[in-house]
């Protein structure tokens, strides 16, 4: 059976999911509807569907990931796929094998779906041009992370019943964040008002051209926000290169009760994980009732099931 029995009219017209960029609002909404149903399935006792039975899904990760990889693995298995995980460490790359070499090798194994994460922006798209199967981008460099954006949108929609008209503040290391880029695109597509809040050293040049209001202080950026999305700051960026220190960063940009108080009283706090407690987010806020961080993880599986199903409908029949 299909998890999409309730929405038979939805047909995803793309072979790959490489980014949120290029998706229409209707396609995004279709995926979210599908994911909503998948979330229901996940709660049922028989949690399995056979929609991907006999299909082969390879998770190809050129960069370490715990939650995204396990989330894709679980999603594939719940849909009945044969799932194989491949972690390509620097070892094989240092032997001189390129992304395209790896793609050709895998293509010869005839997978149906490739889930790919790569540390270089654009690498997943490059790989998709060389294989015959469907490709899902599980994060490429600082470019896009479309399933994260979908799960963020789903989490918001389930809590707020809408996305259009909401004010969403994305705070922290926007410069290096693929999540931020995909989120900015998806929230704009769905009619939200998007802000980015960070020191200028952690913002991409011309950030306002990406479709976000730019703020350099939390007091301005969080004012009357419905959603406060915190981003992770990598440790090596905290010691004088992009920001001077952890304590200065937390003082000015770490989310605590005081800074959150200017947001709407029913504001939701989100974080794509993994969190640095005491760096970008106060521990008490991470565990606050306003935090929907663990719901994001739960929606991650549902969204990935929805994306797998949507792409499966376009696969050649077996």
């Amino acid at each position: 059976m299909s998890i999409a029995a309730a929405t038979p009219e939805f047909q995803f017209p793309h072979r790959h999911l490489l980014g949120i960029e290029g998706l229409t609002p209707a396609e995004i909404t279709g995926l979210l509807d599908l994911a909503d149903e998948a979330a229901g399935l996940s709660l049922q006792s028989s949690r399995k569907s056979d929609i991907l039975r006999g299909r082969t899904q390879i998770n190809l990760f050129f960069e370490d990931s715990t939650r995204t990889q396990s989330s894709f693995e679980l999603a594939g298995k719940r849909l009945g796929a044969n799932v194989m995980n491949m972690s390509v460490k620097s070892s094989s790359m240092s032997k001189g094998e390129t992304v395209i070499d790896t793609a050709m090798t895998l293509n010869a194994m005839h997978p149906d779906i490739l889930v790919v994460r790569h540390y270089a922006a654009g690498a997943v798209e490059l790989l998709s041009q060389k294989v015959d199967c469907s490709v899902i981008n599980a994060g490429d460099g600082a470019h896009e992370h479309p399933t994260q954006a979908l799960l963020d949108a789903l989490t918001i929609r389930r809590n707020k019943a809408r996305i259009a008209g909401l004010t969403i503040a994305i705070c922290g290391d926007v410069l290096h964040s693929r999540v931020a880029r995909s989120d900015i695109i998806i929230f704009n597509a769905l009619g939200a008002r998007v802000r980015v809040v960070a020191p200028s050293t952690l913002l991409p040049p011309n950030a306002e051209r990406l479709g976000a209001e730019v703020h350099n202080s939390m007091a301005d950026g969080l004012k009357d926000a419905d959603i406060v999305m915190m981003l992770r700051l990598q440790r090596e960026r905290m010691t004088g290169s992009f920001v001077p220190s952890i304590r200065e960063y937390f003082h000015f940009f770490g989310l605590d009760d005081d800074k959150l108080s200017v947001a709407k009283p029913d504001a939701l706090v989100m974080h794509p994980g993994p969190m640095n407690r005491g760096v970008e987010i106060d521990s008490a806020i991470a565990d606050d009732p306003r935090s929907v961080i663990s719901e994001q993880v739960e929606m991650g599986v549902a969204v990935r099931m929805a994306v797998l199903e949507a792409l499966a409908s376009g696969l050649p029949s077996q």
């Binding site: 004088g240 290169s241 001077p244 304590r247 200065e248 000015f252």
Partner: peptide
């Protein structure tokens, strides 16, 4: 503006 005036890492300018 840089730690130890070494010209390498920023100081805690805000603080």
């Amino acid at each position: 503006v840089t730690k130890g005036l070494k010209g390498e890492e920023m100081t805690e300018i805000g603080l």
